[in-house]
Nucleic acid binder design. Structure first.
Lengths: 207, 207, 207, 207
DNA sequence: TATGAATGAGTTTTCATTCAT
DNA sequence: TATGAATGAAAACTCATTCAT
């Protein structure tokens, strides 16, 4: 039932989505939908909540623990996992994107609150026990981290874009993409880390 | 008239937008709108075209010429200009974003064609006469460029996000933001460029 | 079009009325109704306005001029005319009644404003050039007038009630009813006026 | 439970009332309501019955006995009591009014039967042991009685109207209103009764 | 007794679009 | 060019009522 709503909202956006289409797809009656959710707006927020929750759950269940302490290792690993999630939950991903930018004013504040909560939580998780010690001393560490994250997100977007119309291929090319992402990140590492230190994450992790 | 359409599409997305609201806002008659544009779809495409055109025009008129040959200088300058454009044409920016991800199937292909054209043109422009010679030799230059662009886009997104609800402040903070962006990019430069070469762009341009 | 609305509102009350039924009856499209009136509420107010206006018009066109100066003559004549109007515009009469007592809170204030305006106007008209000189001196004239009006309204209600289900008969019995009403009012006159003065209105009118 | 129904029917009329709103207000389940009452129609009739019964009960418990034999005394006393009831049971009063004039055809006959029964009973009660002997001989006694009743009802309506939006004030002004009503009725008495007879009701009762 | 999920026809309202003027 | 009345399908939402538990 929420599933049908998610599909519809993801495909048409909030304004374009039709509760009629949702009930048709879900095979339930008009009345029931509104009995449960009260209004289109609340239905949308419920769908949004489900997406955020499912994504977070999947992430927590599938992220390798203990998290890689090295910041770049962590960015690589988590970035790859998030990219995977885009393809595992494509509709949810679209819903989240569309929720961010084309929500009508009446829904906007509630949407933003939810995103803020999740963002805050994600960021705290990302920083948990992270090792920033290998950054060069002449670098602003906060900025360096942000640069890494921002670059990784950009790469994700690039791949999402590239494989938009043939998501199956991304799975086929998964390894190559992962290798590429690593390559990009190694370039970053080269620039951000001190020389002469071990580049591989293995030993670092034990340190 | 198109202005009203752009506002409506930007705020509500394609599906959520209402031609009624557009004519009300534009102060014209229902008939006239359809006389001009024939259908909601065509109106949307016209609005989209206007956005792309206005953005491109603004960019071409405001970009410093000759373009900085150094790739990082160019990324910085063009990135700053594009960030400025987000705030100069916020509705257009929203329309473009929303066009990318929540267009219904009937409009999708035409939207994509337009974006492809513009993207191709932008990319060619960006690469025109660019100087990639200072990248370290052990670096894949294409990847390095992509990393730069991707990071810059990410930074733009970060600032857009940060100033979403108080766009006026972005203007006030413009210089500080620009300085910050430069800082991020200098970090990148440090990693990607060969040592011992002049970092400032001025002399490099003459070189 | 308003006619159909008046019939529906009169028969079902505001809440029970259906705009569907109205458009069906009026032979127009759903959209047109809302194009003209915007909402059920506004449609109702338009219907109400029409009723008040039609009633007032009819009254002004059919009331004998110059108005009988003697207050009881005037009460009789105007009362008879108003009773006639109930049967000439039965639906409008019902709408007015129902508007007075079962309007939902959202419409209530606007309804009351309209009634207040009409009531004030009617009352001013009624008092215009009226002759209260023949009331006994020991009587509060304002109270006496009110008593007359109130009694006349009560009689109207009585006849409306009595002929509710066979309005045609009221027309047949019109003269008898009129005679009866006069009889009641003569009883009142007997009690309220000074003795020994001419009872007939004829001479008084000339005085 | 009936209470909630009475409130809803009183405020919205039969057609406008919602069983949903009733169960919400009453804090019971949908099923239970229909288990008890079977249908909206039957629920309405039950609510109506309750109103009539409560009103009649209250009247019988609060009317002074023995009833004043003098017709005008009785009209005054009963009229005052009925006016009081309007303010003691405002919702019930509204329901009764609205039941009289905007009941849909399916409910109409049953409503009318109930009102007829109560009206007949009330009228019989009113006439029970009444003393009409002091009317002037040249007056149709039946008409005189009706005039009295009708005038009293009209006065009630006047006060209801006047205090509609501030029912509390009516209670505050109760005595003054009662005195006013008496004044009106004394005017009537003056006109309808024979001269030179005692006006006070006390002795008359013994006569 | 009592629940509340479930229904589907009903509601009011808005939609994109047409067309005579 | 320009209007705005007109349409009817579809929108969001509510209705009275049922029924398995």
């Amino acid at each position: 039932m929420l599933e049908a709503a998610i599909r519809e909202f993801a495909e048409k956006g909030y304004g374009g989505a039709s509760t009629n289409a949702i009930v048709r797809e879900a095979g339930i009656s008009k009345g029931l939908l509104f009995h449960y959710f009260g209004s289109k707006k609340d239905l949308f927020l419920a769908a949004l909540d489900r997406c955020l929750e499912v994504q977070m759950d999947y992430f927590l269940r599938n992220v390798k623990t203990p998290y890689p302490p090295d910041v770049i290792d962590r960015v690589i690993e988590w970035g790859a996992l998030k990219l995977e999630m885009v393809y595992r939950f494509p509709l949810m991903h679209r819903l989240l994107l569309s929720a961010l930018l084309e929500t009508p004013p009446e829904v906007r504040p509630e949407v933003e609150r939810r995103f803020a909560v999740v963002a805050e939580r994600s960021w705290r998780l990302f920083l948990e026990g992270i090792d920033l010690s290998r950054f060069r001393d002449d670098i602003d560490k906060a900025k360096a981290v942000e640069l890494l994250v921002v670059a990784m997100e950009g790469l994700q977007r690039k791949y999402v874009e590239r494989y938009r119309d043939r998501p199956a291929d991304l799975i086929r090319d998964a390894e190559r993409v992962f290798a590429e992402v690593k390559e990009y990140m190694e370039i970053m590492r080269h620039g951000l880390y001190r020389r002469g230190e071990p580049m591989a994450s293995g030993p670092a992790r034990l340190a």
